[in-house]
Design a protein around this nucleic acid. Structure first.
Lengths: 187, 187, 187, 187
DNA sequence: TATGAATGAGGCTTCATTCAT
DNA sequence: GATGAATGAAGCCTCATTCAT
């Protein structure tokens, strides 16, 4: 009776939203199935377990981030600051889409005492983000400065998103942007 | 009457650690009871529900933070920078005690779609922290600057703690400190 | 899909018997599940809560009573007394089936301090019974007499069933019948 | 800190009310203790178990009924009808005191599949009531008639009380009275 | 593919009862 | 006498998962 079959990607996206909203422990397979317009049993046709699903959700998230947020378009003419500005806009969109917050940051807290696979994946995603920042900042800054700012920026974003989620206030994300821009243009 | 195995405060502290480690949804009453050396049923002698317990845990946390971390000793001779330095040291200790991380930050993510009471309490705690920062920063900075820096600093700490928890790397917390100190001494 | 062990109606009937035997508070979900040949968890596939189940049990009981006991076959040639005699026989069967007693009467005692929904449903069932009596008695009696006798008869039956259940003695039910018949034939 | 120690009888009376209101299964030891102004543990000083308490409650009820409701004052000058009238008034008071209903009738339903002791006690109480009616009715009626009317009257009262409790309507009890009076005065 | 049906394990909570002072 | 503290068992319900069609 369902309108149409969902693609693997649509399922993962729907599940990502549930996880982002309620966390891993707070999301049941029932909720995930319903979010996909499937029955619980049907849902198991696509995914054999909650953990497997989560890993795939993160995999997709990683791909998405790598191709949409972290990938630097090298043959561009705009400045590092301008580039970062666009990057920030896309980041804010990503962290505001449907549910405010950062799925990966959230899972990082829950996953700390779970499986090693999960931790590795989460760390990898943050690493890629840091690397993306590094390459961008390197256009303007010294190696050391770029390195530190990249590492710091990831943390800054996570803190800002946490407060954004809690207080519904974009101030935090805007401050992060201003601060990074200042360092990029000051150089 | 049989003597109490643990005092109310000891129970709350033990539970705080469990919540900090596994989150609210990820912690079962069984785990909490065991962490207190009690059976599940005995545990209910102290707390009528998981939610009530959580609120008391947060209450205690708030009291602790207000009296140990957020309270400014006014009749002191040291500078704002020195004062902040000590404050930071205590904060790092607090966020490293037994389990790395920030209970309140963690709960803020889970609580977003839970009870309003919980959200209010969490917001209040962050507010107090911000206010403490503000009063301290005000010693050196203009009202506007102090205000912004205070708000930003809370977010910065949360981001740093998140990454500290994930990567076991104190770099993040140290950077936060340096950055704030720079603004305090530059003025 | 695996075939259902028991139909919805079979489940409700099995549960009705449990409730009739042990009352609402005295019947556990485990008992109900076992009475249906299901595990506790499987039982929840059919009913989300004990209260919801009870309401459905009463709904089914009401339907059964309305169609088997309370419904008057209008185009019949027999007298009111004869009709009542048959009605009584069916009533005795109903109150003796598997477990002696009246589920609704029993629940009426327990429900007095429970949910309003429950009370309403119970009152409605008794109302329907009274109405059935009224229509039947009206064939022979004045409006006022019929009204009073109908109201009284429901109470009489309940008292008789209570004593029947306690003492295993059909005398009580037989007396109720005789008394009503006397009023119907005396007119 | 309690105002004053409760007598055994006060405790039993307080418990009787709880049982009358919520039934045996629906009343917890906690509720009983609180109704007596005692803590749960203190309550066990008086009663070793819920079942033992219940039996004592019934014992007291039996004593009360035997001496206040069932005992016929033989050296009186009034007629059987007048005597019954007074008896009825006391009965209505008894079944209306604090909580509408008949504890024994209620327990008879719950107890049917419990301990034999309980059943015996309940049957004995109803027997005594029946005997009291018999002796009274015998003043006016033939042995057979008195016997039947006595047995029937107990059931009638129980039915009337059940409906009185459910519908808050004294009509039922009044009808029982009228009916019995008619038989007493018709003779 | 899809899903109605089923389930063991576990989660939150209450209960009747006991312990130890 | 009295009660704070403790507990095993049970009660209601949810969860992740499997079965069988």
């Amino acid at each position: 009776m369902r309108p149409q079959k969902l693609s693997r990607e649509q399922i993962l996206n729907a599940c990502a939203l549930q996880f982002k909203r309620y966390g891993y422990a707070g999301t049941s397979m029932e909720m995930l199935a319903k979010a996909c317009g499937l029955t619980k049993a049907s849902f198991y046709y696509y995914y054999p377990s909650k953990e497997a699903l989560l890993l795939d959700v993160l995999e997709l998230t990683q791909h998405y981030l790598n191709s949409h947020l972290f990938k630097l378009n090298e043959n561009t003419q705009i400045s590092a600051a301008e580039y970062f500005d666009q990057m920030h806009t896309r980041a804010v969109q990503f962290f505001s889409y449907e549910v405010k917050g950062c799925l990966v940051g959230m899972l990082s807290l829950e996953a700390r005492y779970h499986s090693a696979d999960l931790l590795d994946k989460i760390r990898a995603i943050f690493q890629h983000w840091e690397m993306a920042f590094y390459q961008l900042f390197r256009l303007q800054l010294q190696e050391d400065e770029a390195k530190i700012l990249a590492k710091q920026s990831v943390a800054d974003y996570e803190g800002a998103i946490l407060m954004y989620r809690l207080n519904d206030d974009l101030f935090y994300l805007d401050q992060v942007k201003q601060r990074i821009l200042k360092q990029l243009t000051a150089a």
